[in-house]
Design a protein around this nucleic acid. Structure first.
Lengths: 189, 189
DNA sequence: AATTAAAGTTACCACTTGGTAACATAAATT
DNA sequence: AATTTATGTTACCAAGTGGTAACTTTAATT
C-alpha cells in the first residue's frame, strides 16, 4: 500500500463532508466516516483527534456557504435588500451542507459540535444581520428568514406543509415575493 | 409481582411520551422505553407491536396539541385572527410534545413515523389553515408561522439566533407583534 | 384440584457504536 | 545496510441497539 498522509487526511475529511451532506448529522460517526473513506478509523483519532477534532477543523475552515457579495451599505437600499434576500434564499436551498448544519443545531449541542456552531453562527451573523432601525420589521424579517430555513429543512423529508407544495418552484417564488412585499409594506410606514 | 395488563400498557405508553418530551426523537427507543417504564421490552412487542405500533397508537389517539377554540368564520375578522395567532404561538411554545414531533419531521420519515406524521399533519392543517384569498399574505403568514416553529425548536439548544435572545420573553412578544402588524399591513392593501 | 391461558422476566442473538492496543509495513535517517 | 520513525491495518474491547425464544409466575377455566 502507498503511504500518503496528506491524501489520507483529505479522504477522511471529504468522506465526512459527503456523509454530512447525504445522511445528515445522524449519519456522521467515526465508523461511517472510516468506511466511506476506505481507511482505518484509528487514523481519524491520530490525525484529527476524533470527531471533536474533525468538527473543529471543519469549523475553522469556515467555508459553510458562499458569502454573498453584497456590501453592507447597499442593504439600506430597498431594491438591493430584496435582491440580497433572493440570493440568500437561493443559496440556502442549493447548499445542502449549510442545511445539514442548520438541522444539526436543532437536534443537539454538545462538546463536539460546540466549536462548529460557534463559527457557523458567527458567519451567519456577519452575512444576515439586518441594519434596520424598525424593531418590528427586524422581527418580521427574522421570522421569515427562519420560516425559509424551516421549510427548506422540512422539504428533505416532506413533500408538503399543510396545503403548500414544497416541491414546487412556484412555492419558493411565492415565499420570496412575500418577503419582498413585507419589507416594502413595512418601509412605507 | 402483580399482573395487570392495562396498567402495564399505560406505563409503557406514558414512558414513551415522557422520553419523547424530555430527550426528543433521538431518545425514543425500545430499550429506553422499557427501562423508563420499568418493564420488560418483550411486552412492548407483544402489546403494541414494537415501535411502529406504539407510534400508530399515538397517532390515532391524536391529542398532539390543544385544539384552539376558534371558529373558522371568526378568523375572517382581523382582531380575532390576531388573537388566534397569539394563542397558537403560545400553545406551541408551551407544548413540548408538539415541538418534538415537529423536530422529528425535520430529521426522518420512515415506515415507523409515517402514520404519526400523517395524523399530526392532518391536525395541523385543520387548525392552521388560512382562508384568505390573498396569495402573498398566505405565503407571508406561513413563512412567519414556520419561523416561529423554527425559533421555538432552536431555543431548546441555542440561547440566541444572531443577535436575538431566544430566552427573552420580549423576543417572543416582538415576534407576535410582527405577525400582527404584517397581517394588518397586508389587509390594508 | 388440575389444567390451560395470559402476563411477565431472563437470557440470548446478531449487529453497531466509539475507542484503544498491538501489530505490520513502508519510508526516511543514520 | 541497519535502524528508527511515520503510516496503516487488524483485532479487540465494553456498551448499546432492536428483536426473539425460552422460561417462570400469576390468574382464570375446566
Amino acid at each position: 500500500m502507498k503511504k500518503d498522509r496528506a491524501a489520507t487526511e483529505e479522504k477522511i475529511y471529504t468522506a465526512f463532508l459527503d456523509i454530512l451532506k447525504e445522511k445528515g448529522p445522524q449519519g456522521v460517526g467515526i465508523n461511517a466516516i472510516a468506511k466511506e473513506a476506505g481507511v482505518s478509523k484509528s487514523l481519524i483519532y491520530r490525525y484529527f483527534g476524533g470527531m471533536k477534532g474533525l468538527l473543529l477543523l471543519f469549523a475553522q475552515k469556515g467555508d459553510f456557504f458562499k458569502s454573498l457579495s453584497v456590501i453592507d451599505e447597499k442593504k439600506d437600499n430597498l431594491e438591493n435588500l430584496k435582491g440580497f434576500i433572493k440570493e440568500g434564499t437561493k443559496e440556502l436551498r442549493e447548499n445542502t451542507l449549510t442545511q445539514e448544519i442548520l438541522r444539526w443545531q436543532l437536534i443537539e449541542n454538545n462538546e463536539d459540535t460546540k466549536s462548529l456552531f460557534k463559527y457557523f453562527n458567527a458567519q451567519v451573523g456577519k452575512t444576515f444581520t439586518t441594519n434596520t432601525k424598525d424593531e418590528s420589521l427586524n422581527a418580521a424579517f427574522q421570522l421569515m428568514l427562519g420560516g425559509y430555513v424551516y421549510f427548506t429543512l422540512l422539504s428533505k423529508f416532506n413533500k408538503t406543509f399543510i396545503a403548500t407544495d414544497l416541491t414546487s418552484e412556484k412555492t419558493w417564488e411565492n415565499f420570496d415575493e412575500a418577503i419582498a412585499k413585507t419589507i416594502e409594506l413595512f418601509s412605507k410606514t
